[in-house]
């Protein structure tokens, strides 16, 4: 397994581009309250993990809601689920897995100082996020809106089998829109990373941003890994 050199070592990376007196990431100094870049890197990463744990707990609320409602109203959930097309769910799962791959690859590119590939992978991750949202909106949300498969007081779909189906749609819309809002936030972060990558902010000695956002993006992917079978595949 390849490892990065430690803080004390200079990056022995001949491929890393330099702009005369060194690029941003070569000259990067940690904030003054950190002992070293290593110290800062650890703190940043742990901070991101703490954020991710709150994200897991946010979605935990939705999972508990799912468990309760599924136990109380199994027929409503089974019929509600049969009204979703698992093929769109599958396509979106594949899209998100690909985006997770490009996100992981972008971290690797930053570590190796491959500026070109870094930009490509950041942009691809952004694009996959956009594709996920587009598929969701055009093929899933729009038809459901027009047929009144909506939560709570917006519900107007007549062909229910179990009268508790508005609860199912409440869960569907609640879970998928909270998840989609995370995708939107992640896409914004990737645009920000892309802008910074064009300024050569990231390299072997400094890639905290790429790493942190990738972690966030992976947790969004993991949430979808659970939402997909829970919403589309139960019967």
């Amino acid at each position: 397994m390849t490892t990065l050199p430690h803080d004390q070592l200079e990056p022995a990376n001949s491929a890393a581009p330099t702009d005369g007196g060194g690029t941003y990431h070569d000259r990067y100094q940690p904030a003054h309250h950190f002992k070293s870049r290593e110290h800062e890197f650890d703190a940043v990463k742990m901070g991101v993990w703490l954020l991710l744990s709150t994200e897991i707990l946010l979605f935990a609320g939705l999972f508990v809601f799912y468990a309760i409602m599924r136990m109380k109203h199994p027929e409503a959930f089974v019929h509600g689920s049969s009204l979703l097309d698992w093929r769109w769910g599958l396509i979106n799962t594949v899209v998100l897995l690909l985006s997770s791959f490009t996100a992981a690859a972008s971290v690797r590119d930053a570590q190796l100082g491959r500026q070109g590939w870094l930009k490509v992978n950041l942009f691809l991750t952004f694009l996959f996020g956009g594709a996920f949202l587009a598929i969701k909106f055009i093929f899933e949300y729009l038809p459901k809106i027009s047929e009144g498969k909506l939560p709570g007081i917006w519900y107007s779909y007549p062909n229910w089998v179990d009268a508790n189906e508005p609860l199912w749609w409440g869960l569907y819309w609640g879970a998928t829109t909270v998840h989609a809002s995370h995708v939107i936030i992640g896409m914004g972060l990737y645009l920000w990373l892309l802008r910074r990558a064009y300024k050569r902010h990231f390299g072997p000695r400094h890639y905290n941003g790429v790493e942190g956002v990738a972690l966030y993006w992976h947790i969004v992917d993991i949430v979808w890994i659970f939402l997909f079978p829970m919403l589309y595949l139960i019967h």
Partner: peptide
């Protein structure tokens, strides 16, 4: 240490996930 994950591992993981 900061580990750079080899490309082969990343691709294997992607294939496994699919």
């Amino acid at each position: 240490e900061h580990v750079i994950i080899p490309m082969r591992t990343l691709v294997t993981v992607l294939v496994l996930l699919m």
